[in-house]
Amino acid sequence: MQIFVKTLTGKTITLEVEPSDTIENVKAKIQDKEGIPPDQQRLIFAGKQLEDGRTLSDYNIQKESTLHLVLR
């Protein structure tokens, strides 16, 4: 499924993921596309910060959901 990741600069990254993918996994995909190390990434969905060990389905993230990427 496709999800979108919006950065603070207003750029939107499109990722191909599975509901069973972990947040860690998603961060690795963002690193592949954008070169941002996962340890600098914070992903936010519905106002919650997403934890590395959880999966997209844990957070009920469905196709075409938009996550927000904050760098630390």
Rank of each mutant, 00 (worst) to 15 (best):
M1Q: 06
M1A: 04
M1R: 03
M1T: 05
Q2C: 02
Q2K: 09
Q2A: 14
Q2D: 12
I3Y: 01
I3D: 00
F4N: 05
F4L: 07
F4P: 01
F4E: 11
F4M: 09
F4Q: 14
F4V: 07
V5L: 09
V5Y: 03
V5T: 02
K6V: 12
K6M: 11
K6W: 06
T7F: 07
L8C: 03
L8V: 10
L8Q: 11
L8Y: 12
L8D: 12
T9V: 06
G10W: 07
G10E: 07
G10K: 04
G10N: 10
K11P: 12
K11C: 03
T12N: 04
T12Q: 11
T12C: 02
T12V: 12
T12Y: 05
T12G: 06
I13F: 14
I13H: 11
T14E: 08
T14M: 10
T14S: 08
T14K: 13
T14Q: 09
L15M: 10
L15Y: 03
L15I: 12
L15A: 02
E16V: 07
E16F: 14
E16W: 09
E16Y: 15
V17Y: 08
V17H: 04
V17Q: 09
V17T: 14
E18N: 08
E18L: 14
E18Y: 07
E18V: 11
E18C: 02
P19M: 11
P19K: 05
P19I: 06
S20E: 09
S20P: 10
S20F: 10
D21G: 04
D21Y: 14
T22R: 07
T22D: 11
I23S: 04
I23F: 03
I23Q: 03
E24L: 10
E24V: 14
E24K: 13
N25C: 02
N25A: 12
N25P: 02
V26K: 00
V26P: 00
V26C: 02
V26S: 01
K27W: 03
K27D: 00
K27L: 05
K27S: 02
A28Q: 10
A28E: 07
A28H: 11
A28D: 08
A28P: 01
K29G: 07
K29Y: 15
K29H: 08
K29S: 11
I30K: 00
I30W: 01
I30Y: 03
I30A: 02
Q31P: 02
Q31W: 09
D32P: 03
D32R: 11
D32M: 06
D32S: 13
D32L: 12
K33Y: 11
K33T: 08
K33A: 10
K33G: 06
E34W: 08
E34A: 08
E34C: 02
E34M: 07
E34V: 13
I36G: 03
I36T: 12
I36K: 03
I36C: 02
P37D: 10
P37Q: 15
P38I: 10
P38Y: 15
P38R: 15
D39H: 15
D39I: 14
D39T: 14
D39Y: 08
D39R: 14
D39C: 03
D39S: 08
D39M: 08
Q40L: 05
Q40N: 13
Q40F: 13
Q41A: 10
R42A: 09
R42G: 15
R42C: 03
L43C: 01
L43M: 04
L43F: 06
I44A: 08
I44E: 06
I44T: 11
I44V: 14
F45N: 05
F45P: 00
F45I: 10
A46R: 07
A46S: 08
G47K: 04
K48E: 10
Q49P: 15
Q49N: 09
Q49G: 08
E51Q: 07
E51R: 04
E51G: 05
D52A: 09
D52C: 03
D52M: 10
D52I: 10
G53Y: 13
R54K: 06
R54W: 13
T55S: 13
T55C: 02
T55K: 13
T55Y: 13
L56A: 03
L56D: 00
L56T: 03
L56C: 02
L56N: 01
L56R: 00
S57I: 08
S57D: 15
S57Y: 10
D58L: 04
Y59L: 05
Y59R: 01
N60R: 13
N60V: 11
N60G: 08
I61D: 00
I61P: 01
I61Y: 01
I61G: 01
Q62L: 12
Q62I: 14
Q62R: 06
Q62V: 07
Q62G: 13
K63L: 14
E64K: 05
E64A: 08
E64H: 15
S65P: 02
T66V: 10
T66R: 06
T66N: 04
L67D: 01
L67S: 01
L67N: 01
L67G: 01
L67W: 01
L67A: 02
L67I: 07
H68R: 05
H68I: 03
L69M: 04
L69E: 01
V70R: 04
V70P: 01
V70L: 05
L71F: 07
L71E: 14
R72E: 15
R72A: 09
